[in-house]
Amino acid sequence: MEELLQVGVVTQTHGIRGEVKVFPTTDDAGRFRDLKKIFLDTGREKLPLEIQGVKFFKQFVIVKFKGLDTINEVERFRRCPLLVPREDAVPLEEDEYYIADMIGMQVETEDGKAFGTLKDVMETGANDVYVIDSISHGEVLVPAIKECIRKVDVAEGKMTVHLMDGLVQE
């Protein structure tokens, strides 16, 4: 299981005083108000940063990091993910899962036959859609609804699905 979970991605700088514009990848962008520390994934290292201030603008979060006070100091953070330790993550409700824990899960049908591997989760307006790399059907899109997703076992890394008519071509 991933110990650090992504909550946003820096899209660009904001102004000249060291603020960055963040696209939230969490269900609750308001959670940034409660965050004090965060990790910035530069690709080479996970840089611990302290959050000094948070504002909201449209669908973005404007974040100011302590000790980084100029545009030049934060310019290099573009496209870098922002991560929080699992213990600082928002608690999950019943039938909710962290996407990071689901990627790579083995998917099987209700009759126990291997179907494929979960390779991505698309977040849409109505419900998420699971992108499954199927053994015999290629890429299959399965809506994350109770009628299709019968069981998710994060500990075992397994998901059981019901394939409704039309989801796969026979």
Rank of each mutant, 00 (worst) to 15 (best):
E2M: 02
L5P: 00
V7Q: 04
V7M: 03
G8N: 05
V9E: 11
V9K: 02
V10R: 00
T11Q: 05
T11I: 13
G15Y: 10
G15A: 07
I16K: 04
I16A: 12
R17Q: 07
K21A: 10
K21T: 11
V22L: 05
P24G: 06
D27K: 10
A29N: 01
A29H: 04
G30R: 06
G30P: 02
R31S: 07
D34H: 01
L35W: 14
K36M: 06
K36I: 05
K36L: 03
F39L: 08
F39I: 05
L40F: 03
G43E: 07
G43N: 02
E45Q: 13
K46A: 07
L47I: 05
E50Y: 09
K55C: 09
F57R: 04
F57D: 12
K58C: 05
Q59N: 13
V61R: 00
F65V: 03
K66I: 01
K66F: 14
G67C: 11
T70L: 06
T70Q: 07
I71T: 05
N72G: 03
R76E: 11
R76T: 08
F77W: 03
R78I: 13
R78D: 12
R79I: 04
C80K: 06
V84R: 15
E87H: 12
D88W: 03
A89S: 14
V90F: 04
P91E: 11
L92N: 09
E93A: 04
E93D: 14
E93M: 12
E94C: 09
E96K: 10
Y97E: 13
Y98E: 15
I99V: 15
I99L: 14
A100R: 10
A100M: 08
D101A: 02
Q106F: 11
V107E: 04
E108I: 08
T109M: 12
T109G: 09
E110S: 15
A114K: 15
F115W: 10
G116P: 00
L118A: 08
L118K: 05
D120C: 09
M122L: 13
M122W: 06
M122C: 06
M122T: 11
E123I: 10
E123W: 10
E123K: 09
A126K: 14
V129C: 07
V131G: 04
V131S: 06
D133R: 01
S134G: 14
I135G: 02
I135S: 07
S136G: 03
H137T: 07
H137S: 13
H137W: 11
G138E: 07
E139G: 03
V140H: 01
L141H: 07
P143H: 01
P143T: 09
A144Y: 04
I145H: 05
I145R: 12
K146P: 08
E147K: 05
C148A: 15
R150G: 01
R150E: 12
R150T: 01
V152D: 08
V152C: 10
V152M: 14
V154Y: 03
V154Q: 09
A155L: 13
E156A: 15
E156F: 05
G157I: 11
G157R: 06
M159F: 11
M159V: 07
H162D: 05
L163G: 02
M164D: 02
M164T: 13
G166P: 04
G166E: 05
L167C: 13
V168N: 11
Q169I: 14
E170R: 08
E170K: 12
